Amino acid sequence: MLKQEERLENLFQYFDRGAELISEEKELLYLDSLALVADQLFKGEMIETKNEIEKKKLQTIFEQIDLDKLDKEVVRKTFQLTVLKGMKGAVQPHHSLTPDAVSLFVSYLINKVSVDLKKDFLITDLALGAGNLLSAVLNQSPKPAKAIGFEADETLLNLAFVSANLQQNEVELFHQDSIQPLPDLKTDIVVTDLPVGYYPNDEVAKEYELKAPEGHSFIHHLMIEQAMKQTRDGGYLFFLVPNFLFNSDQSEKLHKFLKEKSIILGLLQLPKSMFKSEQQAKSILMLQKKGEGVTQVQQALLAELPSFSKAEALADMIKQIDRWFKQQLGK
């Protein structure tokens, strides 16, 4: 009987070696090859390779993998490790993954507000990437949730698709840029690790309140506005935002928009040690869309989170956050 660690190791070896073989034989990028390997595993099929020695090794591993006996989080984390390996060798700068500790912390915050939501509530991610953040949120949710994700990059979307299948999560995926017009989703919760930079399509951007007065608009501003539009009244929004969000030349307009449309629940600064440079550092912005019965909190939750490796300091911070949710939101 295999131990959990051995199952995890087997799964990683199968994903990784399989992706490397397909990448070499079909001259594909590692990430595209990984999506093919994972998709075939989900279908119960082993990959085809001309390398007979490697084929026998992979066959042995393949026969020991039983996805039904693996915890969803084990599958997510193992798949994430192989995606991370592929991203290190990728040339696309937008290929990045939300760190695991951050995904789990955001999940904890979402579970605080989703406690009163109906079963099968809707979560939307407007910049899905490889789906790691959304998968973590779904796996950690104490009640079933439905999910929608938008991603313009085909490679990342394929990875998100196979990842959701392997974890048996119900996710509806759209291969499109979410700044483009969308149907009215009326989602209960938005969770998005915001892309940062300029949005190239000025024609689409001109329909937004937060468009730039001239030149290209900030994609992170437009996505916040789109998210607000797609959230039902009283719904919640969780964004990973750059620390300089409220210090840019258009931040006054953004702040006015947020105060007009939502209650700013909190801003939690992530540990700076997680990021290569101060410019890349991020925070978690928590909002509630205004609507009937939504009341202003007396005090927003503002904090600088300790390093996730400092267990005692983090436990103390979570106690303070729990207290805030009880006092301010009654949750």
Rank of each mutant, 00 (worst) to 15 (best):
residue 86 G to R: 03
residue 67 L to N: 01
residue 77 K to L: 12
residue 217 S to C: 03
residue 188 D to Y: 05
residue 21 L to F: 03
residue 149 G to S: 04
residue 236 Y to C: 04
residue 121 F to H: 13
residue 193 D to Q: 10
residue 304 E to Q: 14
residue 121 F to G: 12
residue 214 E to L: 12
residue 94 H to T: 08
residue 90 A to R: 05
residue 174 F to V: 06
residue 298 Q to C: 11
residue 67 L to F: 02
residue 94 H to W: 05
residue 77 K to H: 12
residue 29 L to F: 13
residue 196 V to H: 09
residue 170 E to M: 00
residue 293 G to S: 12
residue 257 F to I: 06
residue 129 G to R: 01
residue 169 N to I: 02
residue 21 L to E: 02
residue 283 S to D: 14
residue 312 E to T: 15
residue 195 P to M: 03
residue 92 Q to W: 02
residue 82 T to R: 01
residue 13 Q to Y: 11
residue 83 V to A: 07
residue 132 N to T: 10
residue 44 G to R: 01
residue 168 Q to F: 06
residue 140 Q to M: 10
residue 21 L to R: 01
residue 238 F to V: 00
residue 21 L to M: 06
residue 13 Q to K: 11
residue 179 I to E: 00
residue 193 D to H: 06
residue 30 Y to S: 09
residue 264 I to M: 13
residue 156 L to V: 05
residue 135 S to L: 14
residue 300 A to S: 14
residue 214 E to M: 08
residue 32 D to V: 10
residue 93 P to D: 08
residue 67 L to S: 02
residue 79 F to C: 08
residue 284 I to M: 08
residue 65 I to S: 07
residue 114 S to V: 08
residue 34 L to I: 09
residue 264 I to W: 07
residue 47 I to Y: 00
residue 162 V to L: 01
residue 213 P to C: 05
residue 57 K to E: 12
residue 104 L to V: 11
residue 120 D to S: 10
residue 168 Q to M: 07
residue 56 K to C: 10
residue 165 N to E: 10
residue 264 I to V: 13
residue 46 M to N: 00
residue 209 E to G: 06
residue 143 K to L: 04
residue 190 V to S: 11
residue 181 P to V: 08
residue 260 E to H: 15
residue 252 E to C: 05
residue 113 V to M: 04
residue 273 S to M: 10
residue 278 E to Y: 13
residue 319 K to P: 08
residue 97 L to Q: 07
residue 7 R to A: 09
residue 81 L to T: 08
residue 247 N to I: 06
residue 185 L to D: 08
residue 203 E to W: 10
residue 260 E to N: 15
residue 76 R to K: 07
residue 235 G to P: 04
residue 295 T to I: 07
residue 212 A to E: 12
residue 55 K to C: 11
residue 77 K to W: 06
residue 321 I to T: 08
residue 86 G to Q: 03
residue 145 A to T: 04
residue 188 D to G: 11
residue 299 Q to S: 15
residue 328 Q to A: 11
residue 24 E to D: 14
residue 124 T to E: 02
residue 194 L to Y: 02
residue 176 Q to H: 11
residue 224 I to C: 09
residue 331 K to Y: 05
